[in-house]
């Protein structure tokens, strides 16, 4: 199953204004893994994600997705395997109705209409949003938008899901349902987030980015216990691992 592997080696990227966003980043994510990429604002998460979908070309080092090494010529092929969920669902749902939007990816792949219809139904059913099919995206709630956006990614049946802040601006229940949904997937999942509790629930492995470099890469449980590391990276322990705030159980 080599085509589900994401390998990043010595990746470096400096923006035209001289800001170094990534410096010598190395990791290898294998088939079916769920990995959280965490880090404070400006740590380089977004830049890293843009490399994974081929929007940015590595300045140094390389990105390999499955059998392909990322380059302008291979970006199209790679985007078939990598599905990206953007942070703002309004950016992702650009078609007039949810159904049109979910059909966008499969139609671009040139699939016959019946297959596309089946995929739309499937994807919307998976996220529990089939009833939203004919609705216009701007009439949906935040949680519904997020589900629709996920369906639009799933419809292209990617092997690898790249999610940028999937739980941001969701109310607690929508967030909980989204986490349950993501937990059911068997894709390789790469989740960039500030929601460390979600990372703890979903991802056995965590990579901490700090100042464009990898500060830690290991089992999520171990990393989130290491308060010195979290502090140095501008992060805090997930709430679920902190002491109880009402009974004053001492925080560790």
């Amino acid at each position: 199953m080599s085509h589900h592997i994401v390998e990043v080696r010595d990746l470096g990227y400096t923006y035209p204004d001289g800001t170094t966003a990534l410096n010598a980043v190395n990791f290898r994510i294998t088939h079916g893994e769920a990995v959280a990429i965490v880090g404070s604002n400006g740590a380089g998460k977004s830049t890293l994600l843009l490399h994974l979908i081929g929007h940015l070309t590595p300045q140094t080092g390389m990105v390999q997705i499955g059998d392909y090494r990322m380059a302008p010529q291979t970006a199209r092929l790679i985007r078939r395997t990598v599905g990206m969920l953007f942070q703002d669902p309004d950016d992702q749902l650009f078609m007039p109705t949810v159904g049109d939007d979910v059909a966008f990816g499969p139609l671009n792949m040139g699939l016959p209409k019946e297959d596309v219809e089946a995929r739309v139904e499937n994807a919307l059913t998976t996220v529990g949003a089939l009833h939203l099919k004919d609705r216009a995206p701007y009439r949906l709630s935040g949680g519904e938008k997020r589900r629709a956006a996920i369906a639009s990614v799933l419809a292209s049946s990617p092997d690898i899901l790249v999610l940028d802040e999937p739980t941001s601006s969701l109310d607690p229940r929508s967030r909980r349902r989204l986490i349950q949904l993501l937990a059911e997937f068997h894709h390789t999942r790469i989740i960039a987030t500030h929601d460390l509790d979600m990372a703890f629930d979903l991802c056995p492995r965590t990579i901490i980015l700090h100042g464009g470099e990898i500060a830690a890469d290991g089992p999520t449980g171990d990393i989130f216990q290491d308060e010195a590391l979290l502090m140095a990276s501008g992060l805090e322990k997930p709430l679920s691992m902190q002491g109880c705030p009402s009974c004053r159980h001492p925080r560790r």
Partner: peptide, 24 residues
Amino acid sequence: DRARRIYLAMVSRGFDGEVHTLRT
């Protein structure tokens, strides 16, 4: 900025300059 992000979202789902739809 938003236009750039939308374009990105379109490209990452295989947009090739043509908008296809299921409507008949």
